[in-house]
Nucleic acid binder design. Sequence first.
RNA 1: GCUCCCUUCGUAUAGUGGCCCUGGACACCGCCCUCUCAUGGCGGUAACACGAGUUCGAACCUCGUAGGGAGCGCCA
Length: 467
Amino acid sequence: MTVRTRFAPSPTGFLHIGGARTALFCWLEARHRGGEFILRIEDTDRERSTQDAVQAILDGMNWLGLDHDEGPFYQTLRMDRYKQVVENLLKAGKAYYAYESKEEIDVMRAEAMEKGLKPRYNGYYRDRDEGFRDDPNRVIRFKNPASGSVVFDDKVKGRIEFSNDELDDLVLFRSDGFPTYNFAVVVDDIDMNISEVIRGDDHVNNTPRQINVYNALGATVPTFAHLPMILGPDGQKLSKRHGAVGVMQYRDDGFLPHAVLNYLVRLGWSHGDQEIFSREQMIELFDIGNANRAPSRFDVEKLSWLNQQYIKSDDPLELVPHFIWQLRAAGIDPEQGPEPVDVIVALRERAQTLKEMAEKARVWYAPLENYDEAAVTKHLKSATALPALQAVHEHLGASLEWTVESVHEAITAAAAAIEQGMGKVAQPLRVAITGTQVSPSIDHTVFLTGRDEALRRIEAAIKLAGG
RNA sequence: GCUCCCUUCGUAUAGUGGCCCUGGACACCGCCCUCUCAUGGCGGUAACACGAGUUCGAACCUCGUAGGGAGCGCCA
């Protein structure tokens, strides 16, 4: 039997980190085992579901490259099917109508709590068999087995057993005529031939009741794998407060999709000591059975490190479109300066994110207006600054070519001419070009500025140095 | 309250009874390299929640305790 997994988000917001990790694991399991990955939108909650959220989820999946083989399927388009299935259950005596109001149910729960029991429905209409009646409180409930227990072998958590007397008769159809989540998922997973249900472990407690529904429907029960939650850095539930919003925010913040994927795959899963996984390696090595049981915390530091690993090792040409996107987002015109690929080469070891890289690149795309005061004092007012700048200006101006190498030679020659070390020339020059004491290696820094602009900036610095 | 789940350095993890007075990684600290900043290299600080038991031997098995989490909806 072919492996079929699904990712089934409800469209009530963007695709967040936890959802993305679940989607990744589902996708990986399908790809690893040569199966299919299905996308389903669980939109039975008409109040909270929105088309924008559907699009946000699709965008997020697309950005991460988690392609699905079937879908997206929408539950709201399958209403007739749910009705048909529940009718069959009713006819078979495996479900029944119940007429308590929500208030009555609340009282029931409160009473059970008081007795130290689990709050649950007491099964008043279960064997009364009053049949259909036109009543605004009418719901359809499932006749859960009264005795015995449900056992399943969770691929992540191991064997889990629930006693049936812990479970009450869950509502299959609400009084508004819509199916409940617990019913719709089961019908969908059966109809879509899902063989492995991989989802967050907040669903562990729903699993036994769902298994009972599978059995009542005479369907094969799929295997389950419940993934632990991803928490914020403080160990609390991940929230907007942590800045961890939709995955698209990570693009905006300058992260590469494969870096995010790599980070996510290592959250709760590992393969020995390996940290870097290409997409192909993930697919080859992934095994849901190795997933961890304990919840994990989201750590931006590690993500940043991974991101830089990829910035460093990726072909700079492939980073160009991403980088240009970031330049524009930072209000920088990529046309007004050096070739982006040259900038990437100069900055790839100095930026953890592309956003940071764009910020650092600003100096080559806009006129130099501000000088750092401390930098000027330290490197332009020093005794050797003036002769150093003059020598560099001369050698740079005389240089025939304009390449990183020729610039490097010119600077070396200037240093030799005034009998000073590299540092005595590079630092004043760096301040002259960038207005600061920090930049990539001086030859790249000067090269990227362009000959004319570089000479202009050096002239300005010579004036500042008192020349 | 009840049910279920979880617990190795700050973080993510390796470890499946002897190879572990726990290994590599991120972060942190120090040194080296060096035109600054980075990158890179080298080194360092730092953990088996606690208590019993099983065993010749336990991070690994069992039980208990503590702490944390989830669920208990006509939400998904």
